[in-house]
Computed example of a mutant assay.
Amino acid sequence: MAKYVLWGTYCDNVEEKRAPHRQAHLDGLKVQKESGVLVTIGPTKDLRQVFAIYDAPDQDTVEKLVQGDPYWQNGIWTEYEVKEWIQAF
């Protein structure tokens, strides 16, 4: 499978706005991690962006996972970009 990187942005006041959706978001990420499709994910320290690495059959799979996430569906993530990544090392 190919690897994909995701860069996305968070809404303003993210800590407050994400609170009602946080557990559902984390539960979904746990399922993705256990299935092997999600390698890693996390926010930048300033909570302005999110970064993730996926191991997926195609970009469409990654985009469906992002669009199905409560953070995307509820405006916590405001933009995202997925690119196929070549892991050199």
Rank of each mutant, 00 (worst) to 15 (best):
Trp72Asp: 07
Ser35Phe: 09
Ala56Gln: 07
Leu65Thr: 01
Glu84Trp: 05
Val66Phe: 07
Asp12Leu: 08
Thr78Ser: 09
Pro20His: 12
Tyr71Ile: 08
Gly42Cys: 10
Thr44Arg: 14
Trp85Cys: 11
Arg48Lys: 15
Cys11His: 02
Arg48Asn: 14
Gly8Thr: 06
Gly28Tyr: 10
Ser35Leu: 12
Tyr71Phe: 15
Lys33Gln: 10
His21Trp: 15
Asp58Lys: 02
Gln73His: 05
Val37Glu: 12
Tyr54Ala: 02
Leu38Gln: 03
Gly75Val: 09
Leu29His: 10
Leu26Cys: 01
Lys83Gln: 11
Glu15Met: 12
Val50Trp: 01
Tyr54Trp: 15
Tyr54Lys: 01
Asp46Ser: 13
Ile41Pro: 01
Thr44Leu: 13
Leu65Ile: 10
Glu15Pro: 00
Trp7Ile: 15
Gln59Leu: 12
Lys30Leu: 13
Ala88Arg: 11
Tyr10Val: 07
Lys83Ile: 01
Leu6Pro: 01
Ile86Val: 15
Pro43Ala: 15
Lys83Arg: 14
Pro43His: 08
Phe89Leu: 05
Tyr4Glu: 05
Pro70Ala: 08
Lys45Tyr: 03
Val5Pro: 01
Lys45Leu: 12
Pro20Met: 11
His21Thr: 06
Asp46Pro: 07
Asp69Val: 09
Asp46Cys: 06
Val82Ser: 03
Leu6His: 03
Pro57Gln: 11
Gln87Thr: 13
Leu47Val: 00
Cys11Val: 14
Lys83Trp: 02
Glu16Trp: 00
Val82Leu: 08
Ile86Lys: 15
Lys45Phe: 06
Tyr54Asn: 04
Glu84Arg: 14
Ala19Gly: 01
Trp7Leu: 15
Val50Met: 09
Val31Lys: 15
Gln87Asn: 13
Thr61Tyr: 15
Thr61Met: 10
Pro20Glu: 11
Gly36Val: 07
Leu6Ile: 12
Val62Phe: 06
Lys3His: 15
Gly36Asn: 08
Val5Tyr: 11
Met1Ile: 00
Ala24Ile: 05
Gln23Ala: 14
Leu6Ala: 02
Lys17Gln: 07
Tyr80Arg: 00
His21Met: 04
Gly28Lys: 09
Tyr80Asp: 03
Pro70Cys: 07
Gly8Asp: 08
Gln32Tyr: 12
Glu79Phe: 01
Glu15Gln: 09
Glu34Met: 09
Gln32Leu: 15
Glu63Gly: 04
Lys33Phe: 13
Gly42Val: 07
Met1Gln: 00
Arg48Pro: 00
Ala88Met: 13
Ala56Glu: 04
Lys3Tyr: 15
Glu34Arg: 06
Leu6Cys: 09
Lys3Gly: 00
Val82Thr: 07
Phe89Pro: 01
Ala56Lys: 05
Ile53His: 06
Glu79Thr: 12
Gln73Pro: 04
Tyr54Asp: 02
Gln23Trp: 03
Gly68Gln: 11
Asp46Asn: 14
Ala88Cys: 03
Lys64Cys: 08
Pro70Glu: 07
Arg18Ala: 09
Gln23Arg: 12
